[in-house]
Design a protein around this nucleic acid. Structure first.
Lengths: 211, 211
DNA sequence: AAAAAGTCGTGATGTTTTTCACAAATTAAT
DNA sequence: ATTAATTTGTGAAAAACATCACGACTTTTT
């Protein structure tokens, strides 16, 4: 579609840069160097310059980057001019955390509908997001193409299949189940237990320098 | 300390393998091939074989891997014989999700204490984990070395510093703040907003094959 | 006006990770 | 017994990613 030349590793960092540039801009900062950015987002400054360079020469030698210009550039690169609607499936603790998570208000992604299997939650809303019953997915999902999946692991596979049939092509999967989907659907897994266990493993087996 | 030869990418996948082997074992399965594993955890089978090979020849040609043997091997590699105590700082929605997250019961990591700034929560417990006030960190944290940080972003930096002073050397940071810590402290960032935004970006710019 | 300091963009290099592809070994089928 | 089908473990190649280091240009200081 676009420039498929941008490395995936770079693409993953773009939202991070974008958020930090927003912060800088709100603080009234006019310019920023790759070194400052590096300290803030904890990414090597050469990596940052390289990342930016995939989009052309965005900076000025001896000066750095103009915050407003860079912000505008990333805003359009990240399609922040249009709203992306997202649905949340599973309004348990984790799901609720997402619905109340104010950092999503920094950008143009909106969770507009939530679904749950618990009838007692249906009809209510959390932070303004209405909750529907999962059996109403077909009628209510409409043209939403991205969902956050925070259901119990045992439900994941079945619900994922239903979602795909309804046209979803992006799933942010927080369940430990590695769901199987057709090749045109993208799934990003965030596996909380794995993250924690892996941190513990690194601590024991990859000791860091004591300063 | 150990074999620092194991690539980090491999180390990150170990807990995933471990969990899946546990499932297989509970299902009574005796043998498994890298191909089956691959389909289940969505990692290329050659990568799995390579990963395993760092630990020696664990399988048998023409046969595959013995589930019980492999499980036992990973159990000790991942130090599952001893319990790792973890504290949770910030018992909001996200923190509560962790406390109730049963998948941590599959392994030997235990969240034993939670802390929050909200006095009305202090003294209660969530799923058996007692909640203390953050001002009592010094007395209560004791010899816990790993924490899950689910506080508001504005508090992150200050609390992280306090934690480090109390001897913490591993932080699983769910706040959008990129905290600054001494070099002997390991921080893994999980940035929910970035993950969601990055998924949306990939969907728009890296279209997948239609089958 | 000149010198010093700062900073980008990028060629080149180094590192890490993934993947291919196949000999060797084992199991299963005939 | 023989043949066919599996499957590992790994050398080698490829791909992806990060970092170094420096010329070129800009800003700041003297």
């Amino acid at each position: 579609m676009d420039q498929n030349k941008i490395p995936q590793a770079t693409a993953k960092r773009l939202p991070l840069y974008y958020r930090f540039l927003n912060n800088l801009n709100q603080q009234g900062k006019r310019r920023v160097s790759s070194k400052e950015l590096s300290e803030a987002v904890k990414v090597d400054s050469a990596t940052i310059r390289r990342d930016f360079s995939y989009f052309g020469a965005l900076g000025k030698k001896g000066y750095g980057y103009n915050v407003e210009y860079l912000l505008g550039f990333f805003r359009s690169t990240l399609d922040q001019h249009e709203v992306t609607e997202v649905a949340l499936i599973g309004a348990g603790n984790l799901g609720t955390a997402f619905l109340k998570y104010s950092f999503l208000k920094n950008n143009n992604i909106r969770i507009t509908k939530a679904f749950d299997a618990d009838s007692s939650k249906v009809g209510k809303d959390i932070d303004g997001v209405p909750i529907f019953h999962v059996s109403d997915l077909e009628e209510e999902l409409e043209n939403i193409r991205v969902v956050i999946l925070t259901v119990p692991a045992s439900e994941a596979e079945e619900i994922a299949e239903k979602l795909v049939n309804l046209g979803v092509n992006g799933i942010l999967n927080f369940t430990p189940a590695r769901i199987t989907v057709p090749s045109h659907v993208r799934v990003h897994h965030i596996d909380l237990a794995v993250e924690l266990q892996s941190l513990v493993y690194f601590l024991k087996h990859y000791p860091l320098e004591k300063e």
